[in-house]
């Protein structure tokens, strides 16, 4: 049983990305780095594209060409945002797969930290286990 449904994930990450972009250092830093990100998620199947303008989902997201793509399942997404994943291990064991220049992938990880700080409050809002 996936940790969240497609509907919950879409609503949660729609809000989370917008808050990160508008209210944290993530927004300006993403813009400055000129990076765009595609998350391809299994269980539930959901595709998210994020640039400095905000997130796009599914068909709109799939039409974009990102700087970095990351593929993982829903449970790994949840653990990633809760900082319960050790990235070298996740990459080595293919829990997370990434496409895009390795330097950009390494740059993405610290950029996402404001979202990791916010995520627990969204877990409470959407009744997800922490």
């Amino acid at each position: 049983m996936p940790i969240f449904t497609k509907e919950v994930a879409t609503e949660l990450f729609g809000e989370l990305w917008m808050k990160m972009i508008n209210e944290t250092e993530f927004g300006p830093k993403l813009k400055e780095s000129n990076m765009t990100i595609l998350f391809v998620v299994d269980e539930p199947d959901i595709t998210m594209f994020v640039d400095a303008n905000g997130p796009l989902f599914d068909d709109e997201a799939k039409a974009k060409v990102p700087t970095v793509s990351m593929k993982m399942n829903g449970d790994t997404v949840h653990k990633f945002w809760l900082k319960q994943i050790f990235i070298p291990k996740a990459l080595a064991t293919r829990q997370i797969r990434a496409k895009g220049p390795v330097g950009k992938v390494l740059q993405l990880l610290p950029l996402l930290k404001p979202g990791q700080a916010l995520y627990p409050e969204y877990c409470k809002k959407f009744n997800l286990p922490i």
């Binding site: 220049p101 330097g103 950009k104 390494l106 950029l111």
Partner: peptide
């Protein structure tokens, strides 16, 4: 050369 720009590396493409 191999280090990401974010930390002060050159951030070169492959």
């Amino acid at each position: 050369i191999l280090l990401p720009e974010y930390y002060g590396g050159l951030g070169l493409s492959p």
